[in-house]
Design a protein around this nucleic acid. Sequence first.
DNA 1: AAGTTTTAAGACAATTTTGTCTTAAATATA
DNA 2: TATATTTAAGACAAAATTGTCTTAAAACTT
Lengths: 150, 150
Amino acid sequence: MIFSKSCVYGLRASIYLASISGDKYISIKGLSDKLDISFHFLTKILQELTAADLLESMKGPKGGVRLSRSGSEITLKEVVVAIDGPAIFTECVLGLPGCGSEKPCPMHAMWEDTRDEINEVFMNTTLQNMSKEGKAKDLRITPDGKFIWS
Amino acid sequence: MIFSKSCVYGLRASIYLASISGDKYISIKGLSDKLDISFHFLTKILQELTAADLLESMKGPKGGVRLSRSGSEITLKEVVVAIDGPAIFTECVLGLPGCGSEKPCPMHAMWEDTRDEINEVFMNTTLQNMSKEGKAKDLRITPDGKFIWS
DNA sequence: AAGTTTTAAGACAATTTTGTCTTAAATATA
DNA sequence: TATATTTAAGACAAAATTGTCTTAAAACTT
């Protein structure tokens, strides 16, 4: 897997949040149930997104989480960086510490192009792009595919 | 990291092996010393490559490992698949089990293109491509960059 | 004010990945 | 034949990731 499970959970939750209109807070329990992700584990991941200012949270009844900006203003890259860090968008495949333009590894050049494309795609795709697509075409956001876009 | 450490170690060792001419067996101890990788750990990884018929091994003095085919006939993809499996070249980003053309996830389409490019590059690049480049330009294959191409 | 609901925080456990060590088996050499 | 060298195999340990559970703190409801 190119991303950690945490990161995938974070992406799925973020895309789902972007599909919801209004500024209501959505309970994490509700999210974890709909997306079939462990509640406490998801809580920790969403805390990272809150710490990164991608989400806002509120305690108490009527509490939960919501996007801190419009889904059209949050990119997939931001979510990935907040959870897995920027390495996938910046580092070389072999991960050799000093690998750079000065003394690169043999795979540096071939990977650079691909990595740049990954970077482009994730930087130019927003949560709203994904949620609109998902909602319009009733796409899969859970393993069993039984999720219902609201 | 896009690949596991095991996979990266396997790639580095394979590229190095491809840089050596002749059909002599190269001792794993020599490899682990030159590449600065734990000997026993590297041994296990190279056993996977041997099991996948990418390497041949020989016990005893003068024993070691060598490529089972010319480095020009082994692709980077073969090495990756032997160690990390084919998922990176076939699976979708979110890793949802049923994700396919039938009921894809929202990221499916955007990822498909990128994934295909990754597949292309790794399928069309051989160990020899990498070793020749590395040898010719004295590129980095170890963290400290002090490796000497022989 | 008291109780309920929810996130925050952190301890803890299970699993996977990574790394170490020991013994066995095969091959070469003296 | 005996010994040294090397891979094979597998037990074991350490570290990172993933997942569970408990308690605290904040916000709402009655």
